[in-house]
């Protein structure tokens, strides 16, 4: 308990976590603290040598999350402009993943309460779907259209302009 509540600079201690499929990972305590769930577990003294079990996070996304937290924990306070830009570049590259991994990260980051990563994955998903049609979104998210054809037509008719996805040829600069 004392170790966990000591000053925050004591981040040399490694925290072990276990994925749903039984793989073990290690990260500095400062990195683990970026996850709300892990921080609470550490505060409650649940971080032991056996590792904190994460029942809903598989090894593949967990490896990514450990990477993310380790990188961000190392550069958390007093960033110079260059360091902030480097971290931004890291984020941009980090989130260049296939859709399966993106879904995993979305759900896992939300579950583990890693705020920065949640936002990153959410914004990336929004970027990917913003130009899609409603039907494409239903497919992507496995949603069944529960509107009657009449209801759907009415909604589309109300805002016809929003369904024209092609951009007008107006580049001004």
């Amino acid at each position: 308990m004392a170790a966990a509540t000591d000053d925050a600079g004591d981040s040399n201690e490694m925290i072990r976590v276990v994925s749903s499929d039984g793989e073990h990972f290690e990260m500095p305590e400062a990195a683990a603290n970026l996850s709300l769930v892990l921080r609470h577990m550490i505060e409650d003294d649940c971080a032991d040598a056996a590792g904190i079990p994460l029942a809903v996070v598989a090894a593949k996304p967990l490896a990514k999350i450990v990477d993310y937290c380790t990188k961000h924990a190392a550069k958390s306070s007093g960033l110079t402009i260059e360091e902030a830009e480097e971290l931004k570049r890291f984020d941009a590259e980090f989130i260049e993943v296939d859709t399966d991994m993106l879904y995993d990260l979305l759900v896992a980051a939300d579950f583990m309460g890693v705020e920065g990563l949640s936002k990153l994955a959410v914004q990336r998903t929004a970027d990917l779907i913003k130009g899609k049609t409603p039907e494409q979104n239903r497919e992507t998210f496995g949603i069944v259209n529960d509107f009657t054809p009449e209801e759907e037509e009415e909604i589309c008719k109300e805002n016809e302009w929003a369904f024209q996805i092609t951009k007008p040829p107006s580049r001004l600069c």
Partner: peptide, 22 residues
């Protein structure tokens, strides 16, 4: 999470996506 994703979309996409489901 879905709520957050939608929050980051441009208005035009959101108006279109009102027809996805109830």
């Amino acid at each position: 999470v879905m709520f957050s994703i939608l929050s980051w979309l441009p208005s035009k996409s959101l108006i279109r996506f009102k027809s996805v489901c109830k």
